[in-house]
Design a binder for these strands. Structure first.
Length: 700
DNA sequence: TTTAGGG
DNA sequence: CCCTAAA
């Protein structure tokens, strides 16, 4: 009754301005639109490349020299170890997320490292970290010294790898670093790394290095890195040149992927800007269609990709004495985990505070270590502090997928180069950090965290950061422009691989994977007590639905099967693509919002949600016009049902009445309009007919 | 990109 | 809220 009553007079008082719709273009001007470029998943790309490389290497291995054979075993060992470690370590939670991982790995470390590991755990004192560094450095040195022995060398490398891998991909490289070693892969890796360096720089440029002196892990890593850098010679520019028809594609979150043809001249790689133009972004199939690389080996993935991306490069740069400021960022990547269809890579970018290593000034070792070890670069973890501050610790960045098409006869080296180029091109353009909340990009830079909902635990868990190509920005100048010095063993790398294993025509990277270290697990460890922060693990991007954290405290949710598992499981096309795409957090409309909505609809009607949005929710980024439309729909429904059946925050009846009134009015209005038009048309037609008739009549 | 609706 | 066909 009441409703009726309201309805009856409701709209009389309402003023319904007839607002002519401005041309779309005009209306658009209204609102600033941010065009988001597709996000590039450089890391993913790397991962995919790695997978390919791996395949190739496998095929080639038969023919490869003895040294290679030796290496492999070592590698495999390392991988195994690493996996083991990952699961185990969980307990050792370090103060910093980044450090945690390392600490975890350390334990496995056979040599002195075990001790160091403990120290890491305990950590905080810088002195300790130093000691650790030294230790690690020692180890590495030993390897280098032993180099003399071809046989021994490999072995050592193996060890190193194992250890390193646990810690960070980069470390792996260290072993091989020396050109003398003659390891095909490694050299390549080095080259890659160099480029990675570039990339890193670009990335890092954004973020000032701040972090972390705290992480012991970093230090350790640094040491390792150092060794590597020393051992390795820089790749020559000549190496860079390779013409391949390989195509790299990067897919972004939005499912756009980007492809570019590899440039024949490698040098160009160093000039990202030029490449950017080559990129083409286009819409791709939704992620569900993506196929994971057929088979990837762990070591391949981890090593090449990660190592390449950033670790070494950093070293080089620093060594080169690049401007520290420019070098700020180091990127570390780590493959975190695999989901059925996706390979997760965690990266630590200079972006993340955590990942950031000590300032260069501190000491190369320190820097390097941080860079390498920073491996921490896992996912982003968010920590809530009791204060009003929202503490975010970024463990890793989500990186988009990379697609790479490579001819079967392409060499591993060319593949690597291609990847490097692709990555370089992407990075060269400048990276920017994107924010993803509940699977949606947060584009409004002006919103506060509070407004965005980032302060709520619920939301934080779905918060993710992404590295995106910055189309606008000019490529960040890299410190070291001359690549030549960087690549050490490239030539060896260049060696063509046996085609035995057909290269997958296109590697498709999977959705990004993330393993955010599960905070909870970490906490479990006693160590956690120390940390006041509660890390909320945010799997930034990925929801690892599949992998419920088992009791195991392993930080990384890495699948146990890792090594083999690594082979990316072909993505089930129909599999729910849900993993990445999380639902937006539910944000019930407040009464005030409802009121605003009602008011807007009263004025504008029910068919102009965009205008409604602009009028009343223009600054509410989380309310899309679709949301408003949906809300209206529910409001109408709510108003039509008995109050007892309504759920959620009660909406004032008066508002509901207005909803009904407006709904009725506009429905009618629409109908009227429709009728009007029809009538008009009919009338016109009739008139025309009449006229015709008249004319005819007249004529007749 | 918006609308309009179904899921 | 999501997803999409249509416009």
């Amino acid at each position: 009754m009441v409703l009726k009553k309201r309805q009856s007079h409701g709209f009389n008082s309402l003023h319904f301005p007839s607002v002519p719709k401005a041309p779309r273009s005009a209306r658009r001007a209204f609102r600033k639109r941010i065009v988001e470029d597709s996000q590039i998943c450089a890391f993913e790309l790397l991962a995919s490349l790695a997978g390919k490389l791996l395949q190739e290497s496998e095929s080639s291995s038969a023919s490869s020299n003895a040294s290679d054979a030796h290496d492999r075993p070592a590698i495999s060992d390392g991988v195994v170890k690493r996996e083991r470690v990952e699961t185990k370590p969980v307990k050792t939670e370090c103060l910093d997320l980044g450090s945690c991982e390392e600490s975890i790995f350390l334990p496995d470390y056979d040599s002195p490292s075990s001790d160091s590991r403990q120290s890491l755990k305990e950590i905080p004192p810088p002195a300790e970290s130093d000691s650790i560094l030294e230790r690690s450095s020692t180890v590495s040195n030993a390897d280098s010294s032993e180099k003399g022995n071809g046989d021994e060398k490999p072995i050592q490398c193996e060890k190193v790898l194992a250890k390193v891998e646990g810690v960070s991909p980069v470390s792996v490289e260290t072993c091989d670093a020396k050109p003398e070693s003659g390891l095909g892969r490694q050299p390549l890796a080095d080259g890659m790394e160099t480029r990675g360096l570039i990339l890193d720089n670009a990335c890092s440029s954004k973020d000032p290095m701040k972090l972390s002196a705290k992480n012991p892990a970093l230090v350790n890593s640094a040491n390792t890195v150092k060794v590597l850098s020393h051992g390795n010679s820089l790749p020559s520019a000549s190496d860079l040149k390779h013409g391949n028809d390989v195509k790299l594609g990067i897919r972004d979150d939005d499912e756009n992927f980007f492809r570019f043809n590899k440039l024949s001249n490698r040098r160009k790689a160093f000039k990202p800007s030029s490449r950017i133009g080559d990129r083409r972004i286009r819409k791709l199939l939704s992620s569900k269609y993506w196929k994971a690389a057929p088979k990837l080996k762990d070591y391949e993935l981890t090593k090449p990709l990660f190592a390449d991306l950033g670790m070494k490069p950093l070293h080089h740069k620093r060594k080169l004495s690049c401007n520290p400021d420019k070098t700020q960022g180091d990127i570390l990547y780590k493959r975190r985990k695999f989901s059925d269809r996706s390979l997760v890579i965690a990266s630590d970018g200079g972006f993340s505070s955590e990942s950031v290593c000590n300032s260069p000034e501190k000491g190369m070792s320190g820097d390097n270590g941080s860079a390498v070890l920073c491996n921490g670069g896992v996912l982003i973890s968010i920590v809530h502090s009791r204060s009003s501050l929202v503490k975010l610790s970024i463990k890793s960045f989500k990186i988009p997928e990379l697609f790479i098409d490579v001819p079967e006869n392409a060499t591993v080296g060319s593949l690597k180069r291609t990847v490097v180029e692709a990555v370089t091109a992407l990075l060269g353009g400048g990276l920017r950090v994107g924010l993803v909340l509940h699977g949606k990009k947060v584009r409004d830079d002006n919103r506060t965290l509070l407004q965005t909902g980032i302060t709520s635990t619920e939301n934080i868990e779905t918060l993710g950061f992404t590295l995106e190509p910055n189309s606008v920005q000019a490529p960040v100048p890299l410190c070291c422009e001359e690549p030549p010095a960087i690549l050490p063993c490239e030539t060896s790398h260049l060696i063509p691989r046996s085609p035995e294993t057909p290269i997958v025509e296109s590697l498709k990277l999977i959705d990004s994977l993330n393993l955010a270290p599960s905070p909870t697990t970490n906490h479990a460890d006693n160590n956690s007590e120390t940390s006041d922060q509660e890390p909320l693990s945010s799997n930034a991007d990925v929801v690892a639905d599949n992998k419920p954290p088992s009791d195991s405290k392993a930080l990384v949710a890495v699948e146990p099967a890792s090594a083999e598992a690594l082979a990316v499981v072909p993505l089930n096309q129909k599999s729910k693509r849900s993993e990445n795409v999380q639902r937006r957090t539910r944000r019930p409309f407040s009464v005030s919002e409802v009121e605003a909505l009602v008011e807007a609809v009263e004025e504008l009607g029910t068919g102009r949600w965009r205008d409604v949005k602009l009028r009343s929710f223009d600054n509410a980024d989380h309310r899309t016009y679709v949301d408003l439309k949906d809300k209206w729909k529910t409001l109408v429904h709510t108003a039509q049902i008995a109050p007892q059946q309504r759920r959620g925050e009660p909406v004032p009846q008066n508002l509901l009445d207005r909803v009904l009134a407006a709904h009725g009015y506009w429905s009618q209005h629409q109908a009227k309009q429709h009728n009007k038009n029809q009538v008009t048309a009919t009338a016109t037609a009739t008139l025309a007919m009449l006229q015709i008739t008249d004319g005819q009549a007249v004529e007749a």
